[in-house]
Amino acid sequence: MALWAQLDDVCVRYGPKIVMQNLTLDVVEGAITCIIGLSGAGKSTILRLLNGLKKPDTGRVFVRGNDITDMRERDLIDLRRTIGFAFQFSALFDSLTIGENVALPLREHTKMPDAEIRKLVSETLESVGLAHVEDRYPSELSGGMVKRAGFARAVVTNPQAVLYDEPTTGLDPIITHVLTDTIVKLRRRLNGTAVVVSHDLESIFQMADYIAMLFEGAIVAYGTVDEIKRSPNPIVQQFLQGSEVGPIPI
């Protein structure tokens, strides 16, 4: 199995708090890897390590075999152009329309003619189930639509990988299903890699090729959906069952 990225013996601290300790994780190329874990466990930090928004205190981060740990900001900017990032609250620029938001990376990174950009933006929005919203502002859309617009912005440049931070949190079951389906379709369309951070188990079981469970700063379980479901690890089982009784302190 070819690897898209690798975290090797990574430690991360926020002030005195240790978020990751000797964490090692492989992200398989061309697959959907889902990272699960308790709130505040550091799942989103893994995504930020993968696109260089966060540097580890110790350990190395590799993307497509390149060590990005000490990469200069200028080189990281080039790397990030190849990685889409869908933020938890979408992080759309509220002063721009949806069309302008999605078009921004194209306008800044390519010399595409305006008509072509408009066409591509329109097609990308349609591919995530959003048609005719180009002229509307983020504040005029529902939560699910804003999430999908964030997906569209993340994938409009055809990145080799897309990172999704809590893509279904706080949404109703129907929209959750639509978004999960969208992530699977986008991965197929881009023929790339996806890393999804979430604790929405139903949606994870539906889309994941691999699942990694983060607990107390380390990956305590890794495998396919079936392997994780059958894991003998009591931490994994307590998390999957949502039980108050077990090794995870409440």
């Binding site: 930020r48 928004l53 900017i77 990030r80 990032f85 933020f87 992080a91 759309l92 620029f93 990376p105």
Partner: peptide
């Protein structure tokens, strides 16, 4: 406000300074 709503990180993640 852009920092706390992750819009600055969004710019960086789009490869924009």
């Amino acid at each position: 406000s852009m920092v706390v709503t992750e819009q600055i990180e969004a710019l960086q993640s789009l490869g924009l300074s």
